[in-house]
């Protein structure tokens, strides 16, 4: 690896001083992306700032009205195993359980994973469905960025170079939700993704509302398809489901990769999504209120 200085700041302010005084500073979470990039020579920071130990960044707090606050240094393994996640945000739990390997999940942080803005970043799918908001700190001040505006395409985020994600907030979600995460990958550990979808809805009396559709691997960023979600509100008929699927096809722009052509990724996505939507409908309509 290229030479760099590893620094473990004790406060956000201290981290901010390095971000201001040096041009090539990279934040370190679990290092699964950053160290790989440094090893490959894709990045050559002067300073690597280990932000995992900053005060408050490992906090997890759930409140039934306020929702879930997850510190940026919380590990993905917590999402896969934490009881409050499993109970109140099952789609997040389900996705995290399948993500990569125990070795990766035990190190990968929520902040580092969200900042890795690949179109195949699996954590993005449930986070988008649950309307996650990133809380960001920089020496210039604080701001919030809804995840739906966080990914700006081609692996980039809305973060400025001196900004640190401190935590992520997921609003409280009504119970009686059901979500499905479906992926098609070449490798069993989730690598080499062809396409993936997350689908979520809520049952209110006889109606299915709050539909969420997030897609991965088929555009320049992870994204929701709000127009298709709109079509499914209520109790969607088969025709409406087909219309929603057709609409999703208009909103995606998959790329050829060495293991899957763009048109194949479209077909796979369509099939995963149809299956996901049908499963959500069947589950929610079959359950007694």
């Amino acid at each position: 690896m290229n030479a760099f200085d590893y620094i473990r700041p004790q406060s956000l302010e201290e981290a901010g001083r390095y971000l201001t005084s040096h041009a090539h500073v990279k934040l370190l979470g679990g290092g699964n992306t950053l160290l790989l990039n440094i090893k490959k020579g894709l990045e050559a920071p002067e300073i690597v700032l280990d932000v995992k130990h900053l005060p408050g960044l490992s906090d997890v707090r759930y409140h039934h009205n306020q929702g879930l606050k997850l510190g940026a240094a919380v590990k993905l393994q917590h999402l896969a195993a934490g009881l409050e996640i499993r109970r109140h945000y099952p789609l997040l739990h389900q996705t995290a359980q399948k993500l990569a390997s125990p070795q990766v999940r035990n190190r990968a942080t929520i902040g580092g994973t969200l900042a890795w803005a690949s179109s195949v970043s699996e954590l993005a799918a449930p986070m988008l469905c649950y309307d996650a908001v990133c809380y960001v700190w920089s020496p210039r001040g604080k701001r919030t960025i809804p995840l739906s505006e966080f990914y700006v395409g081609d692996g980039r985020t809305a973060l400025a170079r001196d900004e640190i994600i401190t935590h992520v907030h997921l609003p409280a979600f009504p119970t009686r939700t059901y979500g499905v995460y479906q992926r098609q990958t070449v490798r069993h550990d989730g690598r080499r993704m062809i396409a993936a979808v997350a689908v979520l809805a809520i049952r209110k009396q006889q109606a299915l509302t709050h539909w969420r559709i997030a897609v991965l691997g088929v555009d320049d960023r992870p994204k929701r398809i709000p127009e298709a979600e709109e079509l499914l509100q209520g109790a969607p008929s088969f025709e409406e489901v087909e219309q929603a699927l057709a609409l999703v096809q208009e909103r995606i722009h998959p790329q050829d990769v060495e293991y899957a052509r763009a048109d194949y990724r479209r077909v796979v996505l369509q099939s995963l999504l149809r299956h996901g939507i049908m499963e959500v409908i069947q589950h929610l309509q079959g359950s007694r209120s």
Binding site: Y6, G30, G31, L35, V48, Q103, N106, R107
Partner: peptide, 12 residues
């Protein structure tokens, strides 16, 4: 917890 030692910096 199980981790890959090749992906951990020594000072960590």
């Amino acid at each position: 917890e199980v981790v890959n030692a090749c992906m951990v910096l020594a000072p960590e």
